[in-house]
Each structure stands twice: as C-alpha cells, then as structure tokens.
Design a protein around this nucleic acid. Structure first.
Lengths: 340, 340
DNA sequence: AAAATTAGTACAAATGTTTGTGTAATTCCC
DNA sequence: GGGAATTACACAAACATTTGTACTAATTTT
C-alpha cells in the first residue's frame, strides 16, 4: 500500500512550500521556470495526481450526479442510464447510481445521504410507492436545500423541477387509433402499471381514442391493475372475450399477451393485432411474431435529462425557469399488427 | 438557493466554538447537557447535516465504490450491478458506475479519474479491447497505488487481485455432455465472443466434452468469431451441415440460432436440441420454444464481488491474500432440449 | 548610492470536519 | 480558605487543495 503523493510531501522533499508546488504544477507565472521544471519532474516521478476530495472541498462541488431509478433490471431504465452516463462522461461528470427498488423510503434515504456534498444534483424516476402515496415531500425538501433535481418518465407533477417525459397520452392515443385504422373493433387494454403516472396517462389516451371513434368502452376487455399477481390468469380472462386488438401498456403485458394469445390458438396478426409499449432490447423484436411496439427512446431521455441538469449546475444565473421536455415516441411496426 | 448549514455558522450564531458544536452533536461527554440540547435543537432547526466532503477529507476515505462495466444494456452486467448495489447499500457504500463501452482507453481513463480520492476501490469487468490486446497495465498501476480492485467474469489472469468468475469451462463441459447424453451426435458450437476470456474457456469445455466421449471435432459445425458481423449468415452456414444439437456461448448466439433453425424448418427440440449461455431476463425464457440456458447467477456474482471488496477495504490487516471465487452455473432446462 | 521595482518565494486563510490539548472558572476537600 | 480536581468550553492541528498577500532578495532606476 504505497501512500499517494500529496503537495505537502513533495514540498517537504524538495524543500519548498506547499503553495510553490501547487503553483508550479498549475503553471503560475509567479514561479521560476527552473523551479517549475524541477517540481514537475519530481511530481511526475512520484505519479502525483491532485486529490479530488481536497478540490471538492475547496470548490464546493463534486462534478458528480446522483441517479435514482426504481430498477436497473428494467431495460428501459438501463437505456436511460446509458444516455445519462454518456452525457455525464462527455461533460466530465461522474454518476452515482442508486436503486430505489420502488421503495419511497429508500428513495428518501438516498436523497438525504447524497445531498450533503456528495453530489451536485439528481436525476430521478419516482418509485412506485411514492407515486402510489403521492408522497413527494422528500423531493421538495432537497430542492429547497438547493440541490437541483431532474425527473424523468415517472414524474411528480407537483414538484417544481426540470422534467423529461414521454408523450404518453398522445402515443397511446395514436397507437390505439392505429389499431382502429387497421380495422380492429374490439381492442383490449392491458395494464399492470395503473398505479404509475405513465400508466394512467396511457390508459387515458386509449380511452380518448375510443371516444374519438365513437367506440363504446367495454370494461370486460380492459385490464387495469397495479400488480403482476395472477397477471396471466387475468389476461387469459380478458382473452375469453371477443377481441381483435390488444394494446398493452408495458413490455411485460405485451409479451405475456402474445404468448397467451398464441397458446389459445389465435393467429397473430390475422386474428388479433398487438401493440405494446416496450423498450426492451431483446424481447419484442425477437419474438415470433415480432411485436409492434411504441418505442420510448430511453437513451435520448437520459441524454436530455443529463443535459438539463448539467446546464443548470453550470449556469451562472440564479433562477433559470424549470423546463419540461417531451420526447416523442415512435411506433415501430413489426409482425404483430396486420398491414393495411 | 438556501445555503446549507455548517458547524461554523451554527457556532457563530450560538456564540460557541466550532469544536463545541461538533462535540455536542456527537454527544461528547465534554459538553454540558444544557449546551448539547441547545445546540442540537438549533442544528435540527437549521436541518444541519455534516458535509460529507469534509468528512471524507478527514477520514481519507469516501465509502464509495467505482464499478466499471463494458455495457449496462447487457442484462448480465445489469444483474451483476444490481447485486453490487444491494450489498453496497447494506454496508453503507455508494456506487459510482462507469461504462467502458468495451474501450480500453475509457477504462484506463476512468480508473485514473476515480482513483484519486473519489472512490475507495473498484469492481471491474474488463473491456473487450483490453482483453484482445492483453493490455492490463492500467489495472496493475492502480493496484500498486494502493486502490484495491475486484474483477468479475471477464478477468485478467495476470493481474494480482480478487476475482469472481463463473466456472465457464466446467459448465460448458457439462452442458455439452448433457446434449450428448440426450443423444446428440453432431453438436454445433456457436461463439461470437471468441476474443473474451470467458468465450475461450467455454469453447475449451465444449471441446473437452467431445474428447471425453471420443467424438471427433468437426470444424464445419464450429463457429468461433469475435464479431457479430454477418452473424446470421455464418450461423446459417453452420446449420447447412448435419446437426442435431447446438451449444451457443452467449445469449445473442443462442437466440439467433433458434430463430434461424426454426425458419429453416427444423423442429426444436425434436430435430435439434439447443443450449445457450444466457442471463437475459426477458428473452430466453419467453421464446417459443423457450430456451434451455446456462444460468450465470449475475446477481450473486455482484454480491460476492462487493463483499470481497468491502471486506478488504474494512480489514485492519495490511496483506490479506487475494481470493478467486468461482460461482457455479446451473442448467435451466426448458423446451429447447428434448427430454431423456 | 539610495530608492523603487521586480522576481521568486513563503505564509496564511479558506473550504468542513474531528479530536487532542490548553485554560479558565468552579467545586471539592481538609 | 487554599491547593487539587473537575467542569465546560476554546484553540489549534490535521486532512489536500488553491490563491491572495507578504516578504526577501536582487535588479533596475534616477
């Protein structure tokens, strides 16, 4: 365990003062060339690197971003993270990642832990529990303490901060309309995320599309739940009704629906067309038939969120107004929807 | 932007010294109960939290781990990370995550950046480029500087440090043997990761199994490449040979093989049995037929790696010998292998 | 040659903590 | 009541850094 070189050590060994070493290494004109060269050579020899903690303390910032997401195994969040990491790296920031596991308490605890000097700002997607309980106090507290937060995807309307969202309502509306245009008359809605803000918005988009086309709502073919318990059974029950289209609000639901439909002997897309929200990297594209999906551009969401945060951190202005950026989704047509 | 409370501010406003405030908040017996109460109440009012950077400087450690993985969109790495995060959180550590994108340069740069006070130790899976070039100097340099590293999955044999690996050779041997036991005579090997240490070991396990069963090696049905260019064509060419079993060395290969086999009219598992390495959360389990996989226990790998690192960081001993932990894989039989 | 300038350093303060040592004032005991 | 012990706090150093100011020579200027 070699001790790392510090200014002090170098100063002592070269019989100069700490400030001289610091200034020499920073090429200050105050220091003579001779001394500079001597110090720089010695520093190189000792493999000196300025200790970041000392710098952090002096500068009162750490060039580190805290990211809190509910679950890294969800590939949507993994994609967002990779977008965040890309921008952060480009701009010289590090990223501390914490997983809330959908727990409001861990979320709050993490915010507390990191907001006392460790990080300069947060990027967060709100945990399920916090959304369920509409419990957003912990966010406001942190923001009031002067640490900026950017929320993405699962946001808290009431909290005043930068936000990056997908146009959930519109894309659900458009996707449903697409199914209707394909000739579907009985379109089932499958949602196991009805507790999330995004789930609610998507469901509303679906309903709006029905309304626009004067299609009456059939509650037997609408599944809105907030748990995955018995999901298969529930979907199975929906599929017992007369159905020629399925709109699923997340990847889980859509993949499950496809499997169950196939097992029940439906032909996809001949009998039933399926569209699902998804941003998995493996699943939907590779199933047979491959699933038509609403692509959420996870990486772009991450990039935009990181840019928003870093811009705010580096802005000279005190009171930059908060922004909400809406990322447009895109319908990726694959084999699970029949052609016009 | 409210300024955060510091000991100094509190001291000034209560007309006591900084040390008195610090000691009061830490319940030192030196301070009278009256003063303690007064100070604690005021601190609470001001929502005082000790600044972590100051503490870090004092303690010369940050309780932060740096994780460097090649790609977070690979769900194996996402699983490992979630294991790391779990243990880190339990033990009060934060995790800085960096993505090397398979670049040796970014890997080296990240190690440099973080090893000067930001983190206490690293957990790393080596980038493809570094493995290809056998370029491990950057790791040794960091370790020599006194920052411990734990490597997992893709390791560098020559670097002296803690390691967590999967028993790649044995599990490839066993999987291949399993196919042989099922009656397969012509087992293809598909690898698009022949540049990685793990890819080579798995291929060797396959060959050993053939040898053990006196099956001669047929190079026409062995695909060993280090790129995914034209992967489909290459696999297609392999499948033009007489084949009744496929052993694929990663998820990509196995999923591609299944699709191509099905398209070529093979019945799975009747005509061909398929086993693939995989740790995707969505794909293999959900395909039809579902794929029999070698499960790599990503989460456990992450947990073990984090424990190794934290134990070392917190050990009083100077020279704890380095350890290499082997995690056993498990064959998850699904529909793509026929039954005995 | 004395004064002014300049170069090349050292010193000190600041960032926020913790902690060992020092120092008044009070209490104790005989 | 006076020396010892105790109480309750202040002071200072340390962690690693940057940076403004002060100081000491040497050089230049007049």
């Amino acid at each position: 365990m070699k001790a790392k070189a510090t200014l002090k050590q170098i100063a002592k060994e070269l019989n100069v003062s700490v400030s001289t070493v610091s200034k020499a290494l920073n090429d200050s004109p105050e220091i003579s060339d001779l001394t500079k060269i001597k110090i720089k050579e010695y520093a190189k020899l000792k493999n000196y690197k300025p200790n970041v903690i000392g710098l952090n303390l002096k500068n009162r910032k750490t060039k580190t971003i805290g990211v809190i997401i509910p679950n890294i195994l969800n590939s949507f969040f993994a994609k967002v993270f990779s977008g965040i990491e890309k921008i952060a790296d480009e701009k010289g920031y590090n990223v501390i990642m914490c997983i809330s596991n959908e727990s409001a308490e861990k979320e709050a605890h993490t915010l507390e832990m990191l907001s006392n000097g460790t990080i300069d700002g947060f990027i967060v997607s709100v945990s399920e529990e916090a959304q369920k309980n509409q419990d957003y106090e912990h966010f406001s507290a942190i923001i009031n303490d002067g640490t900026p937060i950017v929320m993405f995807d699962r946001i808290a309307e009431d909290v005043d901060c930068d936000k990056v969202i997908v146009d959930d309502f519109d894309s659900a509306l458009n996707s449903t309309q697409h199914l209707i245009d394909l000739g579907c008359k009985n379109i089932a809605l499958l949602s196991s995320i009805d507790n999330l803000s995004v789930g609610k918005l998507r469901a509303e988009g679906y309903l709006k599309a029905l309304e626009n086309n004067s299609i009456s709502v059939n509650n037997d073919i609408i599944l809105r739940t907030d748990s995955e318990d018995d999901l298969k059974d529930k979907i199975e029950r929906v599929l017992e009704n007369k159905i020629d289209g399925i709109f699923a609000l997340d990847e889980n639901d859509s993949v499950a629906a496809l499997r169950i439909a196939l097992r029940k002997g439906f032909k996809v897309p001949e009998d039933i067309s399926i569209i699902g929200f998804a941003d998995g990297i493996l699943a939907s594209r590779r199933l047979s038939p491959s699933l038509t999906t609403v692509s959420q551009h996870g990486i772009e969401i991450g990039e935009v969120a990181a840019k928003l945060l870093i811009d705010r951190l580096e802005s000279k202005e005190e009171h930059v107004p908060y922004e909400t950026v809406v990322i447009k989704t895109k319908l990726k047509e694959r084999e699970s929807t029949r052609k016009l």
